[in-house]
Design a protein around this nucleic acid. Structure first.
Lengths: 258, 258
DNA sequence: GACCGCAGTGTGTGCAGTACATCGCCCTCT
DNA sequence: AGAGGGCGATGTACTGCACACACTGCGGTC
């Protein structure tokens, strides 16, 4: 061996202390898979630099300690080679927001007003004016900033509109609030189909709440009806709080651990 | 099909929304590998409970988001079955620092303080001190006003404590918040078993959120980690808002109509 | 010129499933 | 009541990944 750089056998011996299960054939395999590309001598022998060895160390650690498949490791290395450490999912192009349109001005105002009324408080505000809002498809798109394709998708997954509704509306204030939140979620990388579980869950929750308050509604007495509303508000607030605590605990472990 | 329990096809459809690449043969394969063991009918059909589905969800998440091999997942499940928490080898948690507390009276104060900190805002407050709280069973009962029987029930239905935790604690601040809300709900006439669906839902929601932020957490860059936390906060806030709109619309129809 | 180390190729192995092929159960429609 | 059709169960074969092992041939050194 003429010049500088380690032979494959020397590399093997250096890494063997740290990684039990390294072999020559594994190193060769990693090269054949494009994870490393050591230089070669005239006669074809591999010539490893210290950087190559660090790279190998990274690969072996990722495998042994994080069980990452080579495909994933290769992607990480490629990103590092390209100069970027960021590894976020899809690029997520930001669609221009904040630029409100002329004609739908009205609808957007309504949306903002509703959001303001709802924010900061756990209550349900069942008696609110959200029910009075009624928008057709065009205005609804303008007020939410959604394409009509997205609106269709949200309807298909039960986020807006009623089962078997007319596909073109009308949409009420609750649809508006749901759709505005949904739009942000889509921008953060969620797919409409992911939102379906929220609808499913709400259906279950509604069934539960119904069980609780049907006795009250069965009496025609208007006072009982008002009490039912108060009861609903309370139980929704409490379940919301409880759910949030469960979520926080689960996520806290996830963000800080692992 | 006679009684309770889902068939393999029903399980498939439930999980398909969350996990693209699940198939019947994969579920069968996981059983043959001893990761799940659903019950059988007389005639040999598999009969899945909700717990079985949760277990599957855990397995599939571990594979997809953490690339864990089945062998490792099986070991984790076995530890959970045996009553020990996951215990992830080397990374042992820091023994809680700061916020020391005296038992008894103090506990209720902490609870009130936590509730005040959380109320009025949709955010998650992941960085908050709720994690530092640590109460034993007696103090926890005092702080929440629950009987130890209720505490047990809440634990059995996944509202407080971790899967396979020590039944007598310790309980953290999130448990406290969840339990205080749960106590009110029980007073309003709900049964502990009704609360189980909230836990199930949170598990699904966490799996969804994990999908979104694992790419960020995979880089051990602390800035990416902070961004992941912000992202989580955003997505939790938005889904919460959206869910509330869905709920309100559904309940409005119920209270006023029918 | 023997011999060790490295090169390349080919075949084998365990894991994590997929793809059939075949048979049995169960619900529905007539 | 009986006939289909759909779903479910099992078993075998086949695939892709991540290597391990064996064999043969060449380079360089003593």
């Amino acid at each position: 061996m003429v010049g500088d750089g380690y032979t494959i056998g020397e590399v093997l011996n250096q890494l063997k202390e740290e990684f039990e299960d390294i072999t020559i054939s594994k190193i060769r395999f990693l090269e054949s898979e494009g994870l490393i590309y050591p230089d070669r001598t005239e006669s074809g022998y591999r010539k490893f630099t210290d950087d190559d060895i660090d790279r190998l160390r990274f690969i072996l650690t990722a495998q042994r300690d994080h069980y990452l498949p080579l495909k994933v490791i290769r992607e990480q290395l490629e990103r590092v080679d390209a100069g970027q450490p960021p590894a976020a999912g899809p690029p997520l192009p930001e669609p221009a927001l904040g630029v409100d349109q002329q004609p739908g001005q009205r609808a957007a105002e309504i949306a903002a007003a509703l959001e303001a009324a709802v924010s900061g408080g756990d209550g349900l505000l069942l008696e609110q004016q959200a029910a009075q809002v009624s928008l057709n498809l065009r205005d609804f798109c303008e007020a939410t900033g959604l394409e009509s394709g997205d609106v269709r998708a949200l309807r298909d997954f039960g986020i807006i509109g009623e089962r078997g509704d007319d596909p073109s509306g009308p949409f009420d204030g609750d649809d508006l609030l749901a759709a505005r939140a949904a739009r942000e979620l889509l921008r953060l990388g969620l797919e409409p189909r992911h939102l379906r579980m929220y609808r499913q869950f709400v259906d279950r929750e509604v069934a539960l709440f119904e069980q609780l308050i049907t006795p009250l509604l069965r009496q025609r007495n208007p006072e009982a009806r008002r009490q039912a509303t108060r009861q609903l508000d309370k139980v929704a607030t409490l379940t919301g709080r409880m759910k949030r605590a469960l979520l926080v605990r689960a996520l806290r472990g996830y963000v800080h651990g692992a």
